[in-house]
Amino acid sequence: MASLWARIGASSRTPFTRQFGTYLLGLATWVPVVVWFNTNVAEITLINGPSMYPFLNSHYNESTRRDLVLNWKLYAQESLARGMIVTFRTPHDPNKISVKRVIGLEGDIVHTRRPYPNGYIRVPPGHIWVEGDAADERLSIDSNTYGPISARLVTGRITHILSPWNKAGRVRWWEHVDRVGIVRG
């Protein structure tokens, strides 16, 4: 035991291990900064699944390539507007993060799509109505399945598409026209 300890001690005195150790330690001090930045300012994310077809993952049924986007998290819950693409923790599973488009804000009357039991609903205070872009409602699990979601669940907004190159650039959410069947509140 003692000899083992002495050996470890000796090895830690060799310049390479010590240098490498201090280097790793110095790198580790940056971990909190990176985590803070990624949870509070911005993060680069891959989009999974076809629910935002054709806007995101336009080739979901032709290739396994996924879209790379910039998820802006600073003040993401403030002044949400219809047409924005937001990420949020799903109400049915707190560990899952989903990406959808904001369709209705609080007070709006939304005519719902297929799986929802009621024909229309008024979005309650502090809540938003989110839907996937996919025309085929089976491709998207959204507010039509779990109802209006609290705006507090929103974690970020998709502001830029980074890849593929041909559609890279700002997400021009303000050009998105309201879905048919929204009565603004």
Binding site: Q77, R89, N95, P125, G126, H127, S150, A151, R152
Partner: peptide, 20 residues
């Protein structure tokens, strides 16, 4: 966080869903 390991009867701190 996120209700991990929370049991009935516990006191939790939560974000009020209807307020900003």
């Amino acid at each position: 966080r996120h209700g991990r390991g929370v049991q009935v009867g516990d006191l939790v701190n939560y974000k009020i869903p209807i307020e900003p």
